[in-house]
C-alpha cells in the first residue's frame, strides 16, 4: 500500500533523486507485490503436479525427472525454482526448464505458456500426449488449453478444461477440480 502512495510523488526533478531513491526502495516492495501473485501461481504450478496423474508414456522411465517447462517469458523467476527445489512427485524429480521459442521439447510434462505467445492454438495442438498445459487468462481455454490461471476477486484462481486434460491422457484429482473456479467438460 505504501508503494502506491509513493508513485504519485514523482513531480519534480530535484526530488527526482528522492523519487528514484524512493522508487528503488519500493522496488523490493513491488517485487514483493508482484512476487506474491507469481509466488502463488508458482505454488499452484507445483500443486498441479501433485494433483495430476500422467500416463506412463509421458516419462522415459520411472526415474525420469518431471519437467515443468516455461515457454516464452518467464514471469516466475527464481520463485519457481526455489519452490520446485528438491520436490519429488511420484518418484519423479521436478525440474524447471525454460524455452524461449517453440516448439517445446517432448520431455515436458507441464508446459506453462506465456500468454503473449503467438499462435497459441497451433502450439497447443502440436503438443504430444501427456502434457499439461497451463497459462494465464480467460482465453487460454478457448485455445485448447487445459488450465488457465486467473485473478478473481483479488485472488488467484483457475479454470480447467477437463476434456482437454483427458484428451491429453492426464488425469486430474477431483480435489483440484473442486477448487477450480470453473470446470469445463
Amino acid at each position: 500500500m505504501g508503494c502506491a502512495h509513493q508513485l504519485r510523488r514523482i513531480d519534480w526533478a530535484g526530488p527526482c533523486v528522492l523519487a528514484l531513491a524512493a522508487l528503488l526502495l519500493t522496488l523490493p516492495c513491488l517485487a514483493a507485490e508482484q512476487a506474491p501473485e507469481y509466488g502463488v501461481k508458482a505454488a499452484f504450478l507445483l500443486n498441479f503436479t501433485k494433483f495430476a496423474d500422467w500416463p506412463p508414456a509421458a516419462f522415459a522411465d520411472g526415474q525420469a525427472p518431471m519437467q515443468i517447462c516455461l515457454l516464452g517469458k518467464d514471469p516466475f523467476g527464481r520463485v519457481l525454482d526455489d519452490l520446485v527445489q528438491g520436490e519429488i512427485v511420484r518418484g519423479h524429480q521436478l525440474t524447471v526448464r525454460r524455452i524461449t521459442q517453440p516448439p517445446p521439447p517432448q520431455t515436458c510434462q507441464v508446459l506453462f505458456i506465456d500468454p503473449a505467445m503467438k499462435e497459441l492454438r497451433k502450439i497447443v495442438e502440436g503438443l504430444p500426449q501427456g502434457v499439461l498445459t497451463i497459462s494465464e487468462g480467460d482465453g487460454f481455454l478457448h485455445n485448447g488449453g487445459m488450465i488457465a490461471l486467473v485473478i478473481d476477486n483479488r485472488r488467484v484462481r483457475f479454470d480447467i478444461d477437463v476434456a482437454a486434460v483427458e484428451k491429453a491422457g492426464v488425469k486430474l484429482s477431483s480435489q483440484v477440480l473442486s477448487v477450480a473456479r470453473s470446470v469445463t467438460k
Binding site: F44, N47, K50, F51, V156, Q175, V176, L177, S178, V179
Partner: peptide
C-alpha cells in the same frame, strides 16, 4: 483431510469450508 487437500493447497478457504 483428503477432501481438503485441494482447498488447502490452492488456498481456497471457501472450498474447505464447504467440504
Amino acid at each position: 483431510a483428503d477432501n481438503s487437500l485441494g482447498a488447502l493447497s490452492f488456498n481456497d478457504p471457501n472450498a474447505a469450508a464447504q467440504t
